[in-house]
Design a protein around this nucleic acid. Structure first.
Lengths: 186, 186
DNA sequence: AAGTTTGTACAGAAAAAACTGTACAAAGTT
DNA sequence: AACTTTGTACAGTTTTTTCTGTACAAACTT
């Protein structure tokens, strides 16, 4: 686990590794909430405890997995802003380290993933609203059709209202005002 | 799509179905954020537009999928509080309808899924802190080991602080005060 | 109680996703 | 320019997940 402190006793290394392993296990498992694989979660945990930025080869040897998998895993974490690419003169390998600001990680997740979903949904809903409106106005539907259309419209409007709220919630994460509303310190 | 209004023209049914289908498609796809399958997302969309609570058989025939799949899909949605079981005298089949309060759906998701993850992580982190503290105090580690332990400890403490914040954020969702902080109406 | 109907457990099939090894382009070194 | 090294594209394999059909228990009806 990157503990290449050759002057350590075996026992000392074991103890540290055992503690780390349990944390990595739990944190990694719960990262499925972010839509990442258990393996990728473990990779994240590994990087979390790494004493220095790591290369793909180092990760591969620690995780006992192929470099290809490390490459894709790291890219997933990069996309989620959970890991940063680090430049270090001397080495021409790419180096990666976790983003230790977990507040940032959390809010970025919303600002990126959830925002995208919300915008998609809003666009689809608004398009549907427009279409239904047009149908109701121009094509003189029968009474029963009109009733169904109005019912759909009402549901869609309600959903749209929710997404507008969610959009504002995401705003507070993106611009950091969420920390005024729910302060970091108690 | 449940439009068994026999007096409708084919064209009218097609129009309504087309509009619904697009919304279902988009909403269903983005439900992967909640960790549900695309199929389950579509099932949700189907129920969203259903004019009345549906049975498993009806869902199966609309989705062109087996009843078994409907059963598991509905259970997933029930677990997420996205769908409710509805009682209706006369029918002895189970009936389901979506939870139309999407604010509730969203906050429930946090109150359940995220809360569970946060509690797991907090427990693991605190256990690790305790272990490291004990190691530092009792087992007189070498200088370099102590340095690593302290470094780990610092990272873990920082993570713990974040989770405490997240816990409080989830509190605001669970007790509804989030709507004071980020109002539903603009 | 015998006969239906309904939901789900379970095993197997189908589909999707994760993972690996090879190949190679891009970038760095000599 | 020839030679290394590094990251990733891609094809094939393994593993996991989803989906289906059958079987059956629980609940309801007669």
């Amino acid at each position: 686990m990157g503990l290449d402190q050759t002057q350590w006793t075996q026992e000392e290394q074991d103890i540290v590794q055992r503690i780390r392993k349990r944390v990595i296990e739990v944190v990694g498992r719960n990262m499925e909430l972010y839509g990442v694989t258990l393996s990728t979660g473990h990779l994240y945990g590994l990087l979390f405890f790494a004493d220095k930025p790591m290369t793909l080869d180092e990760m591969g040897s620690e995780m006992k997995m192929s470099k290809t998998s490390m490459s894709t895993g790291v890219r997933t974490l990069l996309d989620l802003n959970m890991v940063n690419k680090v430049w270090e003169k001397g080495s021409r390998k790419d180096l990666y380290e976790v983003e230790y600001d977990w507040y940032q990680t959390f809010t970025d997740y919303f600002a990126n993933e959830w925002r995208r979903a919300v915008e998609n949904n809003l666009q689809a809903l608004r398009r549907a609203i427009k279409e239904i409106d047009r149908l109701l106005e121009t094509s003189e539907p029968s009474e029963s059709v009109a009733a169904v259309l109005k019912n759909d419209l009402q549901k869609i409007r309600q959903a749209e209202q929710y997404y507008r709220w969610l959009d504002r919630l995401i705003d507070t994460m993106e611009d950091g005002t969420i920390y005024d509303l729910v302060p970091k310190e108690t």
